[in-house]
Design a protein around this nucleic acid. Sequence first.
DNA 1: CCGATATTGATAATCATTATCATTTATATG
DNA 2: CATATAAATGATAATGATTATCAATATCGG
Lengths: 139, 139
Amino acid sequence: MKKIIDAKLKEKDYRLTDQRRTILDVMLKNPGKHLSAEEVFEKARKKSPGIGIATVYRTLEKFTEIGVLYKSVFESGKFRYEIYNSEIHHHHHIICLNCGKITEVQDDLLNDLERRIEMQGFKIIDHELKFYGYCPNCK
Amino acid sequence: MKKIIDAKLKEKDYRLTDQRRTILDVMLKNPGKHLSAEEVFEKARKKSPGIGIATVYRTLEKFTEIGVLYKSVFESGKFRYEIYNSEIHHHHHIICLNCGKITEVQDDLLNDLERRIEMQGFKIIDHELKFYGYCPNCK
DNA sequence: CCGATATTGATAATCATTATCATTTATATG
DNA sequence: CATATAAATGATAATGATTATCAATATCGG
């Protein structure tokens, strides 16, 4: 996995600094988790105490650009990032209205709907589906 | 429609001030549009030149709480509001990656998926589906 | 009309994020 | 290994969307 990422960075002439390596490690150690910039910053500081918050923001953005991370926005208005996992091509989020926990489900139900929308003249590139409700613990 | 909204406000002991009336008019004149707070402010000022931006934010939030408006967040991270329309119980958004235009489609395709998720212990209250692509003009 | 209290507007404060800039550092090349 | 280039860093100022504060005003029921 790291090799693929290394290749992506090289492809774009991006440097693999210690800070970027650290942030990448944080994300790889938290697959499926949707971490805010602040959360990434806290975790990265444990390994690289001198890392700066501006670097975290920049790196998260850069990694999103090259396809290493997936960036989402939820109701708080804050961006959250998760490691891109090509095995799970597409997944949806369930957001618990009580505890805020974000769970993922896997499904590919939307192809028919996309087809229908494209017949109206649109060109669909991607989609995002969120469910709001209560998780098993809060129900 | 206004009568229903009046009733909702009364139900909660909220007062119907001129400013709130103005903002409500703005939203009712723009059905289906997703207006940012700033956009609402600009439109409201034309009718009530003295209205304050803080009031716009507060009122949009208050109207969302009582179910008069529906509040969404998109990739800009900014909140956008639209008038709640009970005839269109559920709709989805298509966001053009080029011009940013937001179009709505109506579909109720997701009931099966919600059933399946509920069998896993979740309780689903609502869902939100966004498509990203290019509109007919930008394609 | 009066009183209680919700609501307002201006503006300060907050927060997540981005811009700025001097300094540091990764990497390619000889 | 040494060097040059320019990408990247960290601290912090700046930005923009939104919320808090507070004195003043307005709504609504009695």
